[in-house]
Design a protein around this nucleic acid. Structure first.
Lengths: 348, 348
DNA sequence: ACCGTAGCCGTAAACGTTTCCAGGTACGCA
DNA sequence: TGCGTACCTGGAAACGTTTACGGCTACGGT
């Protein structure tokens, strides 16, 4: 419960002025004798400089923010972990906020004017004109995860959804699929729109597309059950994310369709869930971790050089082929997954 | 772009002193005319008070920290989501840090002396004497997720691991299991030790226990494969977490053992993964979300009243029975919970 | 007519730092 | 001896806010 020591006390104890104390502690020009005296005094008092006062004076908080619509979504968590690593490696603290709906996002960006953070990585659910305006007005740099009109003049990091989905469609064609359906999430979301569009581009305008109520397994199950019971049953399904794909697998199982022989299934996001599911899920890896890392790096770069030209980074996609679409299918080649350290919680 | 307006500019434009401007904006005693003038000036200038200066003056940052060994672990994420909700509802921002090893945790707690946060929720990997000391010395309140010696004089929130595991063992007995094995994680971790001990207490000293190399599905698969191929094959397995349990299910499937008839499987943590897996996994719900919520609430309460007596909250466990241990095999209500009598202290 | 009081206001100090600036000392060199 | 210079130091201002304090005005009661 020791009351926090201030630099004034340190200076007093060392017998110097606070100016000298500050200089000595910060390694500015200072006689070695005073440096030693100040260091000693600081050590004895347990002095640690106050972050708030320092921020006020320096005009930088050493804090960065990560704003996301829904923490709890594994993809965002993966990004967050990557961001946290980069950011803390650079000596910044990370603030995590969830924005909720679109209005909340705008509020959050404008709230940056309070100056509690030196920059922000923003992962918006939807990109409205209002949001673009808010981001453009922001007093501190913002890096957007996703695409934004170039006019916003902001750094962005986007996945190559189109490329990834093209990979998946090509793969399904290669294994002999004749009729590929797309199980999308809500079409009024960014990923819904983008991924839906990419699928149409890759599979042609005649390929069947259905939209689930949201991006959950339950919604995927519901819509897939109808799709697979109807006429013209597809022999392959590409889902807009892994959860939807799991829902599709549930429906297929329920309807007695064998996977991958009667129905090949591919997801998007390449989550841990898909790797562990049986049959293990083929999935498009959109590089969430890499996107988070790049976004954080871009933010740091911009903090160093506020006037550099805004960049639009696109992270390449890859396809992880697993049992759910592997028609050649050796029985259990399922452990071909990259090992992932997974330490359990430290509770008791 | 627009340089941030300060209260001085607002005051100038409104034709009053900064003191009056501050009062007007903060709703202190002030003539309605000046209030209006100041409000108008603030609106026109887009004035938003600076968080750092405010913090310095008020001595509170309106920030709370959540420190955890490994973000990315779903259990911690669940807690984080709950904490974030409580904390932001109370007008605080949330800083998220991952501590890495034990030394990092201690450093982090002492770094609180920088005063960048008004309090912290700490989820330590291991509880060392050094950590206890650091927490006790902390200038701001710390709430620990997990147990701590009462001498630390700190609020804690812990799961009822023993109760939860007892529930699971009782359930397995009830469905007719004769020989229940425990698949533990590494015994030198906190959860490994606690859960292992709880199992022995519940199932007796003769029940077989094996330890996997870590808390992953792959490790669970490896150790379960040996266990299930050996003599005296158990007819039920309780795993120390859901990932291990999934590994057990993989092994059972590979060995042609049907679940739950030939082998019932139960996990711990009640994760989304277990719910979505087929067969859906019965799991002990240790209330991660509830623990996070309670911890955040305790922290807020302590901020309001720094002198109240430290509380040791234990969150009750529940069992979510699903297909992997449901021998009757009725179509099930996924959320069937077996409530456990458990005195819960500190209801507000 | 006077005084007490209530209401509002501005000046200035304070929070804990960093940093500009001017002054002081010591020293080397002419 | 005198002067320039290099080095170090302390005083004070500044970052943007809140707030204690005292003064002013207006007003109502005696």
């Amino acid at each position: 419960m020791a009351q926090r020591a201030t630099i004034t006390q340190v200076a007093q104890r060392a017998g110097v002025s606070i100016a000298s104390a500050s200089r000595a502690l910060n390694g500015l020009t200072s006689a070695t004798a005073t440096v030693e005296a100040v260091r000693a005094a600081a050590r004895e008092l347990g002095y640690i400089p106050d972050a708030t006062a320092r921020s006020l004076k320096l005009g930088r908080t050493l804090q960065l923010a990560y704003a996301v619509a829904d923490i709890g979504n594994p993809v965002y968590v993966e990004m967050m972990a990557a961001i946290q690593e980069v950011v803390s490696g650079a000596g910044y603290r990370l603030l995590v906020t969830n924005t909720g709906d679109a209005a909340g996002t705008v509020d959050l960006v404008t709230s940056l004017q309070r100056g509690y953070a030196d920059g922000m990585v923003l992962s918006p659910l939807r990109v409205t004109d209002e949001l673009v305006a808010a981001v453009a007005q922001s007093p501190v740099p913002v890096v957007v995860l996703g695409r934004m009109p170039e006019s916003a003049g902001v750094d962005t990091v986007a996945p190559d959804s189109a490329g990834g989905i093209a990979l998946a469609v090509a793969h399904l064609h290669a294994i002999g699929a004749r009729r590929i359906a797309f199980v999308n999430g809500p079409a009024d979301t960014i990923p819904g729109r983008v991924r839906g569009g990419a699928f149409v581009a890759a599979a042609g305008p005649d390929a069947p597309v259905v939209s689930a109520a949201d991006f959950t397994a339950a919604a995927g199950h519901a819509v897939a059950h109808a799709l697979l019971s109807g006429p013209d049953r597809p022999d392959a399904v590409l889902a807009a994310n892994d959860l939807l794909a799991i829902g599709v697998l549930h429906a297929a199982d329920q309807l007695g369709l064998s996977t991958p022989d009667q129905l090949a299934v591919v997801g998007v996001d390449d989550t841990e869930l898909g790797k562990l599911f049986r049959p293990a899920l083929t999935s498009v890896d959109l590089g969430a971790s890499e996107r988070g890392r790049r976004a954080a790096e871009l933010l740091l770069e911009r903090l160093n050089d506020p006037h550099k030209k805004p960049q639009q980074v696109v992270v390449p996609a890859a396809l992880s082929v697993r049992r759910s679409s592997d028609v050649k299918g050796e029985p259990m080649a399922d452990d071909a997954r990259a090992p992932h350290q997974q330490d359990q919680e430290g509770e008791r």
